[in-house]
Amino acid sequence: MPSSVELIQSLINGVGIGLVYGLVAIGFSVIYNASGIVNFAQGVFVMLGGMFAHTLLTTLGIPIWLSAIVSTIAVAGVGILVQILIITPMWVRKAPLFAIILATLAIQLLIEQIIIITLGDQPRTFPSFTPGGPLKIGEIALGYQLFWILGCGALMVYALTQFFNRTRMGRALRACSQNAEAAALLGIPVNRMLMLSFALSAALGAVAGILITPTQYTAYSVGGPFGINGFIAAIIGGFGSAPAALIGGIVLGVVQSGAIVFFGAGFKNVVALTVLLIVLLFFPNGLFGGLAKKA
């Protein structure tokens, strides 16, 4: 039987990684709700955030806060490019949704290859935003980066909630998610909203990547696992609101962490997918699917 210290530590670690999954899940939800597209290139934005920030930080010597801001904007730009160059042409030509979803997978592979060619395949990491640590409470260790993840995660959810509920643009995006044709008839530029959703979700992925890199590493290949876990988190949360996606991520992170404690690392994904199946069995629209249909 694991000790209480082990359990608490794994719970904390699970929440930390779960928040990152949650940010990726919100990205999935934003695009899905705006267009019905499941963007499987979402994980690649996580990778790009970490890679860009590392390059700016180590190659150009730009401070981490500025590197983070510039990287987030740059990745949002990549999201817009993806939307303009790939998604919109397919959308305009009325390509079936599954074809567009498949295209997002191809985008992931393409971007990964571009990164290998331009930045190489080696792993990179950079120090925590706040040097030192960890904070010790008894035998429990809390790395300073965890507080950044917690703080930024909460801030992002708050900001997104405000954006979707209190701004014209956010409401317009919600309108598109409810009924794109009706929104277009009301004068909402649906295509521009789709562009906004890609920029927003790419930026969210980038923030996740920048936050998590100091606790592990980034490399061209990290996007896949984050994309899959973010997608599972989005399903558990129900593709509904930002808080729901974030909670879905935390549930997944804690379940995975607990699975390692009780069953070993080999069973982490088995347990996580079993939980997913159980959730879908009892809540086919996800844990919060029926409660909110915002963004």
Binding site: V5, E6, Q9, S10, I17, T215, Q216, P225, A265, G266
Partner: peptide, 20 residues
């Protein structure tokens, strides 16, 4: 004697056990 998966994003549990 702990195991991990290559694409895992956190090994704190295993490392904590080894340390304990």
């Amino acid at each position: 004697n702990e195991t991990y998966q290559q694409d895992d994003s956190d090994f704190s549990v295993q490392i904590g056990r080894i340390n304990s």
